[in-house]
Amino acid sequence: MATVILARHGRTTANASGTLAGRLPGVRLDDVGVEQAARAGERIAGVRLSGLVSSPMERCRQTAKALLAGREDAPRIATDKGIAECDYGEWQGRPLKELAKEPLWRVVQANPSAAAFPGGESLATMQSRAVAAIRRRDAVLDAEAGPDAVWVAVSHGDIIKSVLADALGMHLDLFQRIHVDPASLSVIHYGADRPTVLATNTHSGDLSWLNPPTRKRRRRKRSSDAAVGGGAGPGL
């Protein structure tokens, strides 16, 4: 199967003010977020991409454009509601410091699988549709471009955390142990037997090592087995 780079959108005006943006319209990257997205684009500039999919939220579409800026081989930006922000219902648009006083806040922190936002969706529903969307898109690109295909999904913090938790085999109740910063990049390879998490919440480093080997330097046939002892790493 293919490999997905999970990119969280850059910092927004809502992030900076401590507001839960949710699905409110008009939430855009601030100046810091624009710079963060540009740096993330530099990190993947050498990666041959087979596709890019974005959440429909404006901040993600802004980030997606920044990731592809200046690329001659830029893929078309597709959008997928499956990786849209969690529907926080009546919570969206409210200050986080105010929400932290709500009884539901402790459920979200300690037992997220039981958390459902008033007028919105549950975190379990959010994870289910996000994981399904990522795996479905990954399978399509694998079929179209082959198992060495690399693609990008631009989404949101809780969405990416839930997808990483699934790939790590973690119960949703443990997903708050995962941290995903604005404009950070995480990487999952979906193998035949299991997903392999290659990176989480990274902020620096060229990711061109994700490219498949050239014909002159062919890699050993990819195995779905985990290498005992850790293996030789990419490019060997």
Rank of each mutant, 00 (worst) to 15 (best):
C86P: 02
A133I: 09
G231Y: 01
L207T: 05
D181C: 08
G120L: 06
A153L: 03
V131N: 15
R59C: 07
G230M: 13
R222H: 14
Q92S: 11
E35R: 12
G89N: 10
T125D: 15
R215E: 00
V152W: 11
A149E: 01
P212D: 00
R39Y: 11
Y190R: 09
L99V: 03
A40H: 11
L123K: 09
R71Q: 01
G191M: 07
R76G: 04
I159P: 05
S184Q: 04
R61W: 01
N111C: 03
R23G: 10
G235K: 08
A149I: 01
W209D: 03
E72W: 07
R136V: 00
F117C: 02
H171P: 09
I83M: 02
E90F: 08
R28D: 07
P56V: 01
S186R: 04
I77D: 05
V34C: 11
A130T: 15
V187Y: 11
R218Q: 15
G157N: 07
A139T: 09
W209I: 00
L99T: 06
I83N: 04
A45R: 15
A139P: 09
L141N: 12
S223N: 12
A2C: 06
D30E: 04
R222I: 13
A21I: 01
G41T: 00
T196A: 15
G93S: 10
I188K: 13
S224F: 08
D158S: 06
Y190F: 15
M170S: 08
A45N: 13
D225H: 12
V150E: 01
